[in-house]
Nucleic acid binder design. Structure first.
Lengths: 216, 216
DNA sequence: TGATGATTCATACATCGTAAGTATAGACTG
DNA sequence: CAGTCTATACTTACGATGTATGAATCATCA
């Protein structure tokens, strides 16, 4: 009866194309709206077809993180000071995830022992070691840096703490200056600073703090 | 036909009891297994009954976070140095969430502008201001500290980075010493340290780094 | 041509959050 | 006592989800 329209092979559908569709969908509608059926519609195919390219939704999500990270070079380019190397790394990691805020919950909820991340870590340890850090201190620093960046991102990706960005033109969203005078005042003083600046200030503080651990 | 067993009133079911059941369920089976039906079973009631106490699942999850935090005193007890105050705060925040690791994804995915968190922040700003920090620097420090703790927790709550805890008795899970000699070495050197120690070391580094920002 | 393997789809199932409607028990009124 | 009200609890049902299963179609090569 019902003529089955288009089965069998179709125009070249690839893992890449699916992942790009997923990125588009997440960027547009958020992670919650990423269902197999929706993603199928996005790349013009039935949901079950996706299972030919990915073992399951988890595999797809893993691929998604990988895909986004693959296009971002987090190299700890050597040759300069360890601060410069780590700063570039942290900034580019942050920038990449800020471009796709919907992916932040994914990244933090997924084990990140990929080939690439391990290589970066190894490289980072080598540089820090050469810069005079003991291996243990170097490991502490690399861990802490990653943890700070991730924490910064999860805090930034939901309207959690009253952020500078959410305070436009002086209307402090929901913070009563009478009840919380210092918060209001601090946020007001912070109004003209970019979020990037806050991030950088914290970075430098972390570097200063860990700098004392060299030759341990 | 089928005799309807027990409708109408029952033993005193309360919001508190439901939330405690939810905590139990999450601690036992993880956040993913927290469904209204399961939670209903846990507190011996049908799923829909829960909607009498909570507007929806989101409200329940909000309540869950609140409930756990309510039992943890994150006071920035004054009178001592600002380092002591912030350290106690960070440690107890971490300790609380380590007791309920299943809640970590919830905490980081939920705006945390509760009454309590704002009060703590206000209090923290006051202390830091008194200790010689400019308001802006104080805000940076409080933010960064929170972000670091959260990042530390999300990293610890999944088997993401090869953690010291996962390296038992010298068998480095999945890290090839040939390919990543420094990581293996660093982890081996780290074997005998508690995770608490790593956290504390990072805390002190952050304090040192931000300490230079006083009188700004 | 016919066979083979890659690709796509239709159907079905269990589970989820929850809207809508119904039944019961206790408190209050007369 | 009977009658009513309300808080509490349950039943049923709907749409959305991830995915197991198996059939249908296409490209390719013998």
């Amino acid at each position: 009866m019902t003529a089955n329209r288009t089965r069998g092979q179709k125009a070249g559908l690839t893992r890449e194309a699916i992942l790009e569709g997923a990125v588009r969908l997440v960027d547009r509608d958020g992670l919650a709206k990423l269902s197999m059926r929706r993603l199928g519609a996005e790349v013009d195919v039935e949901a079950m077809t996706l299972y030919h390219y990915f073992a399951g939704k988890d595999a797809l999500l893993d691929g998604l993180v990988e895909h986004v990270f693959a296009r971002a070079d987090f190299s700890l380019a050597g040759g300069r000071s360890w601060q410069d190397g780590l700063r570039d790394y942290a900034r580019s990691l942050r920038a990449t995830l800020l471009e796709h805020p919907g992916l932040v919950p994914l990244v933090v909820s997924r084990p990140a022992v990929t080939e690439q991340s391990l290589r970066i870590m190894e490289h980072g340890l080598a540089e820090l070691h050469a810069a005079g850090f003991g291996l243990r201190a170097a490991l502490d620093l690399v861990y802490s840096l990653n943890e700070f960046v991730l924490g910064h991102l999860v805090s930034a990706s939901n309207p959690a703490v009253p952020d500078t960005a959410s305070v436009q033109e002086g209307h402090l969203t929901g913070i009563d200056p009478g009840e919380y005078p210092l918060i209001s005042e601090a946020i007001r003083a912070d109004r003209d600073r970019e979020a990037d600046t806050r991030f950088d200030v914290a970075l430098e503080a972390i570097f200063r703090g860990f700098g004392d651990l060299r030759r341990t």
